[in-house]
């Protein structure tokens, strides 16, 4: 094997094939990998996995993959621009056609085959919805394999809700519900509820029976959603979460994302909450 081929820190070079504004300061990046090795590496990634995306010169940062294999050839990432984030600013400055790098796929995934036959409760907060989109896509593409699916989708404001143009398809799917909420509802917004996702959750009041929950969002949201789910009778074994860490390598080397003796990047980012609860250190 060549040195290049055995270097896990080397990104695959690709091209920015397209972008789409998803929400305020949140943009979808569609990337076409060019090197055969890159295409092979990403031939069979799974929902929940992540990858480092490079804007060369601005650095690389980890993002959940928001596309699924089989629905088109492009890799998709939703990137929120942070005021002081060098990489996210660098990515937002790119034009279609510009070169980008992708390193991955990394981490574990939502074992979609293990949760077949169950009702699914999906809870996404803000940009945290990005890695949940392939979960929803997988369910909708294999609708008969999964039970009732309830999607609770939250953001601080309506302008921060992501994947809005897919809501109609989600709603139209059989045995599928979508509930939206924003922290503060502007007077002219009628599409959903007002309040935190926990309020929405308690209003919708899903049954814990034969149900798996999948949550992705900021740490504080995961914390309070877990409390609400427990009130509703869910056990920690029913709750899947994806955690984030300040990762710099994605392969368990750089030390930055450890929670006690596990690494979010290499042992996660997907965990059952029962696993997270046993960790020495809190993600909060």
């Amino acid at each position: 094997m060549s040195d290049n081929g055995s270097n896990p820190m080397r990104p695959y070079v690709g091209r920015l094939a397209g972008t789409k504004e998803l929400a305020t300061e949140i943009r979808l990046f569609q990337i076409e990998l060019q090197e055969p090795a890159g295409k092979a590496a990403f031939a069979n990634y799974r929902p929940g996995q992540f990858a480092f995306v490079s804007a060369f010169g601005s650095g690389e940062a980890p993002f959940g993959i928001t596309s699924i294999p089989g629905r088109g050839d492009l890799l998709e990432f939703a990137v929120q621009r942070h005021p002081h984030g060098k990489t996210t600013n660098g990515l937002h400055r790119l034009d279609v056609g510009d070169p980008v790098g992708v390193r991955g796929p990394l981490g574990n995934w939502f074992a979609m085959d293990e949760i077949q036959g169950k009702d699914i409760l999906v809870l996404g907060g803000g940009i945290g919805g990005a890695p949940l989109r392939p979960v929803i896509s997988t369910i909708l593409d294999n609708r008969d394999e999964y039970g009732k699916t309830t999607i609770l989708w939250a953001a601080r404001t309506p302008s921060l809700l992501i994947f809005t143009d897919e809501y109609d398809a989600w709603r139209a799917a059989p045995r599928t519900e979508l509930h939206l909420t924003v922290d503060q509802r502007p007077p002219d917004w009628r599409e959903g509820n007002e309040g935190l996702i926990t309020t929405l959750l308690e209003n919708v009041g899903p049954s814990p029976e034969n149900t798996i929950t999948i949550t992705c969002g900021p740490p504080i949201m995961i914390h309070f959603v877990t409390l609400s789910l427990r009130k509703l009778g869910f056990t920690l074994d029913q709750m899947l979460v994806t955690l984030e860490g300040r990762m710099h390598c994605g392969i368990g080397k750089c030390g930055r994302c450890n929670l006690g003796d596990i690494f979010v990047c290499a042992d996660g980012p997907v965990f059952y909450h029962s696993q997270v609860a046993k960790l020495l250190e809190s993600f909060l």
Binding site: N108, A111, A266, G268, F271, Y272, Q275
Partner: peptide, 8 residues
């Protein structure tokens, strides 16, 4: 799903 490092 939850991969422990095999070096444990």
């Amino acid at each position: 799903m939850f991969r422990r490092p095999h070096q444990c």
